[in-house]
Design a binder for these strands. Structure first.
Length: 607
RNA sequence: GGUGGCGUAGCCAAGUGGUUAGGCAACGGAUUGCAAAUCCGUCACAUGUGGGUUCGAAUCCCAUCGCCACCUCCA
């Protein structure tokens, strides 16, 4: 297997990935998660899914990955898009507008985020990891760690306290500030904002601790006031001597949370830090400055080369940033109606977006809903280093691609059978074994080449194309199925439960011979109501068959029910009553069962 | 204005000096009672535009147009 390479934003080049862990086994990864003041949009999730993809690819390379993604629930100000954060806390603003308590608001949107993340099959939020709190830490629950970092920064003289009891990072002490983003913010330009940060030594200095009496989330660094009791207890343990007495009650700045939480859960020096491209400046730039100032973390040079004494890439060794998702080639905008949350797409009518639902329905999405696996596929289908232009057409293409994979997968599953087929234990032909090896390697090589998903998908569809032209025995199907599942370990878009089956022509013939179904086909146009399968059978026997439109009580089609209708339909076909036969097929489709006639028999697929 | 990135067939998107990845859509054919699925073929001698280097350029150089993002400015 090839070696994994990643584009490191810090060096602006594609580098061979090598973990810090001396045994080469463990990898630590931190991803900037959502600020929970509204429902996450698909642009957020493109970035989150990029980290999910990276994590899966790391695991595929044999690494044991500890992946932390935080929840920002305090301190992210509305004007954090400039380095010297000003403005109102985004959470507090949303809470004020909704008339909610900010803590309640944060929890509401966090729950919604986790729900979305599960729908989109993010590994960090499913299975056992969902219940591991250290993997999804909340900022408001880490104020002790943040104050500890702030205190360190003051002691190390990387930060100072102003007259009002606020704490700033002293940018003059960190000459590498700007190296990640490549920004050279000269004082003259930044000087325009000096009036705002009146107590700053340098206009580029940014808040570590902010004092604002109007803010609803407040912590007193010198008493238990404002604290959750358990957090306060931990605060006392972490800082038995307390913090600088000049610091006044307030709340933490946004940037410090990631430095503090990643250190708390992953250590002071981590392998990979991910985020959206908008995080590069100022957020990640500030994190580097803080982490270095507080913990003096030098990153060994690329690939273990000796550090030249400069902090260089302090804090994280590889910086991986996903580029933006655009709509109509522009950033999403509520004003232009190009803003989509995940839930808008998964269920537009529930999200009160009827126009969107209509548009999607017109594009062939049932009930106007985009299936979550289709959305996942769409959001991961191009390379993260490229901007993605999102739209309904992309979703349609994603759906077609997922269906092509799913169809092949279902058929392979059928061919393998339920495990009782002794042929499945035989060794597959060299031709199939060669195919599986070759395409899995092509897939892995593509992903290892800086997560080149288009090339990885070329391997997937190449495999499907080749398999489609082959007649596979059970053992060969087993190998091919394994290949598809291997692809899907990364993609995670398939429905892996059995959802299709084949009823052979012989079986149907037997039923028709043993009963009088073929005679009864003549009565098909006179069906009456039939609430369940037993009654259906009775009616078939009695020659009183139900009309499909009256079958509303039969909501869940089970295997027996499908067999019955297949038999009835085959009787109709034999009687050349195609109107009835096609009617049965159409009605089954409405009920979520697709019927296909094949040379082997009658194939059904639950949709 | 500064910085970075991008323009590849109807659409999405690989490829970064030398046998046109892949997907989607459309169309034709095979198969089918009709479908579905699948196969074969077409659209496809595509690379924003104009120059240059080269035996050879999507790939390198220069110019130019357009788009995007970040910073700045303005609201």
């Amino acid at each position: 297997m090839s070696v994994l390479k990643l584009k490191n934003s810090y060096t602006r080049s594609v580098e061979i990935f090598q973990p810090l862990d001396p045994s080469g086994q463990r990898v630590t990864m931190y991803s900037c998660g959502p600020t929970v003041y509204s429902y996450a949009h698909i642009g957020n999730f493109r970035s989150f899914l990029m980290s999910d993809l990276l994590r899966r690819v790391l695991e595929r390379n044999g690494y044991e990955v500890k992946h932390v993604m935080n929840i920002t629930d305090v301190g992210h100000l509305t004007e954090d898009d400039v380095a010297d954060a000003t403005g109102e806390d985004k959470l507090q603003k949303a809470a004020r507008e909704m008339g909610w308590d900010p803590y309640r608001l944060a929890r509401h949107y966090e729950d919604a985020f986790v729900e979305d993340a599960r729908h989109l099959r993010m590994k960090n939020y499913s299975g056992g990891e969902a219940s591991a709190p250290e993997l999804h830490p909340r900022a408001a629950g880490h104020v002790p760690e943040m104050l500890q970092a702030i205190q360190k920064l003051i002691e190390n003289e990387y930060a100072y306290v102003d007259d009002s009891g606020q704490v700033y990072f002293d940018i003059a002490k960190f000459p590498d500030y700007g190296k990640l983003s490549g920004k050279v913010i000269d004082e003259l330009e930044a000087g325009a904002r000096v009036a705002v940060g009146e107590h700053k030594r340098d206009p580029r200095d940014f808040y570590l601790w902010k004092v604002d009496p109007k803010h609803l989330m407040q912590w007193d660094p010198h008493s238990e006031k404002g604290w959750d009791p358990a957090d306060y207890e931990r605060f006392r343990q972490l800082l038995p001597q307390g913090v600088d007495t000049r610091i006044k009650p307030g709340f933490p700045g946004w940037h410090i949370e990631c430095s503090a939480m990643s250190r708390a859960h992953l250590g002071a020096l981590i392998d990979i830090h991910t985020g959206g491209e908008d995080n590069i400046f100022p957020h990640h730039e500030c994190e580097i400055a803080q982490s270095y100032g507080a913990y003096s973390t030098h990153v060994p040079g690329p690939h273990g080369a000796p550090d030249e004494g400069s902090p260089r890439n302090a804090f994280a060794r590889y910086w991986v940033h996903g580029r933006f998702l655009l709509v109509n080639n522009k950033k999403m905008s509520k004003r232009d109606g190009t803003f989509y949350t995940v839930r808008d797409l998964l269920d537009p009518r529930a999200a009160e977006r009827p126009d969107l639902a209509d548009e999607l329905e017109k594009a062939g999405f049932k009930d106007g809903k985009v299936p979550a696996n289709v959305l996942r596929y769409a959001l991961i289908s191009n390379q993260y280093t490229q901007q993605m232009n999102f739209g309904v057409e992309l979703l349609q293409q994603a759906r077609a691609s997922v269906e092509r994979m799913q169809t092949r997968y279902d058929k392979l599953r059928e061919a393998v059978g339920d495990g009782t087929n002794p042929d499945a234990d035989e060794t597959a032909s060299d031709k199939v074994l060669e195919l599986v090896t070759r395409l899995e390697e092509q897939f892995d090589n593509a992903l290892n080449e800086n997560l080149n998903m288009p090339n990885a998908l070329a391997a997937v569809f190449g495999a499907i194309n080749e398999l489609n032209t082959m007649e596979l025995g059970a053992a060969e199907a087993r190998e091919a199925l394994r290949l598809m599942e291997s692809f899907d370990d990364v993609l995670d878009v398939l429905d892996r439960v059995a959802r299709s089956g084949l009823i052979t022509r012989e079986q149907v013939q037997t039923w028709l011979d043993e009963s009088t179904l073929s005679e009864k086909a003549a009565h098909l146009k006179h069906w009456a109501e039939a609430p369940d399968r037993e009654q259906l059978w009775e009616m078939v026997e009695a020659g009183q068959l139900p009309k499909f439109e009256d079958l509303a009580p039969v909501e869940q089609m089970d295997g027996d029910m499908i067999e019955l209708f297949v038999a009835i339909r085959q009787a109709a076909r034999k009687a050349k009553d195609f109107e009835v036969a096609d009617g049965i097929r159409d009605d089954l489709k409405i009920r979520g069962v697709q019927l296909e006639d094949t040379p082997q028999g009658f194939r059904w697929v639950l949709g």
